[in-house]
């Protein structure tokens, strides 16, 4: 039984579940939606904000929570299985999805896919809402993500909207 169903059976219709920064929301915060801030991967503060609606999970994989620095280079916990080394190119990937476990795994997979591979993989996985930050602080987002995202960091980093390539078998709505 999933989290949502479990809470429903306990009579909880509105909730925000925070698993150490990974979030899932049910219902609303009173008369308004749940307000989520996405932490900036460098320098602290908030990068962007979005209103999460019923059932949505917001998961981020980044290189900035678990890492050490050695000889000026950052060694973080997301390893590229092709090299056995920390994946390079992106510093964070945020996924909004309706399944928390999938969102968690997919965010990590997109991180490993890197700046040139994430969009194709997102399309294959049926993800519609993705935000990535690269090593130079530039943002890329899918159209569905860009539409709802409010960039709050100042100065505002550049945001490029990336159309997802046409997906094969997996299309919109799958997994719902």
């Amino acid at each position: 039984m999933g989290l949502r169903e479990r809470l429903r059976r306990m009579g909880v219709a509105n909730a925000l579940v925070n698993a150490g920064g990974d979030l899932r929301v049910l219902g609303r915060h009173g008369e308004r939606p749940w307000r989520i801030g996405i932490r900036a991967p460098r320098g602290g503060g908030i990068l962007a904000a979005l209103d999460a609606v019923d059932g949505e999970a917001v998961f981020t994989s980044g290189d900035y929570e678990r890492y050490f620095t050695w000889q000026g280079r950052r060694y973080h916990h997301i390893l590229d299985p092709r090299t056995g080394r920390p994946a390079r190119g992106l510093v964070s990937v945020t996924v909004v999805h309706d399944d928390g476990s999938e969102a968690d795994a997919y965010a990590t997979a997109l991180f490993v896919a890197g700046p040139r591979g994430w969009a194709a993989l997102a399309a294959r996985l049926g993800l519609r809402q993705v935000l990535v930050v690269d090593e130079r602080g530039r943002l890329q987002a899918t159209p569905d993500m860009a539409r709802r995202l409010r960039i709050v960091a100042r100065p505002a980093p550049p945001l490029e909207v990336v159309e997802l390539p046409a997906a094969g078998a997996r299309t919109r709505g799958e997994g719902e």
């Binding site: 925000l16 979030l23 989520i36 801030g37 904000a49 900035y64 929570e65």
Partner: peptide
Amino acid sequence: DGEYDAINF
């Protein structure tokens, strides 16, 4: 009335 209900990271 916090600006955010939770911070994602």
